[in-house]
């Protein structure tokens, strides 16, 4: 129930306004909350979505995700690494970002020094 004041040709009327549903019953403003709350029926198993593979340049090439400064170089060309192992730390965007090997293999063409600056998209190293 809402109160309205309506002025028609200078005369003011106070009205109570009630919204009526199709069956004549007053519609409560919160009526849509009447959705029943059954547990989501799960007649079928609900598997988690499968992560798609992130796009990489070539199989094991790693490029700078953003411009920044090389803070630490933890591996050298010729070192063998496991996927996920930290190779470099790139200081960028107020963060020390760990740059990891995308695949198992041997580091190639890593020629960056601590303090080097890189642009977004620059090749950092390859893992082959």
């Amino acid at each position: 129930m809402s109160k309205y004041r309506i002025t028609v040709e200078g005369k003011t009327y106070e009205m109570d306004v009630e919204l009526i549903g199709a069956n004549g019953a007053a519609v409560q403003p919160v009526a849509k909350a009447a959705t029943p709350a059954p547990a989501v029926s799960a007649p079928k198993a609900a598997p988690a979505p499968v992560a798609a593979k992130p796009a990489e340049v070539g199989s094991g090439s790693v490029v700078a995700p953003m411009p920044g400064t090389i803070l630490k170089v933890l591996k050298a060309t010729g070192d063998s690494v496991k996927a996920g192992e930290v190779v470099l730390i790139l200081e960028a965007m107020k963060m020390e970002n760990e740059i990891t090997a995308p695949v198992d293999g041997t580091i190639e063409s890593l020629s960056l020094n601590e303090g080097s600056t890189v642009a977004g998209g620059d090749l950092l190293f390859d893992v082959k």
Partner: peptide, 28 residues
């Protein structure tokens, strides 16, 4: 993205579990 039809359609069901029927309805 899902590997096959069954897992994909289950994903659709899972998503709809979070949504209302329409903009006039509330989510479960």
């Amino acid at each position: 993205v899902y590997p096959d039809d069954l897992s994909c359609l289950n994903g659709v069901r899972q998503l709809l579990g979070y949504l209302p029927q329409s903009n006039e309805d509330l989510s479960l």
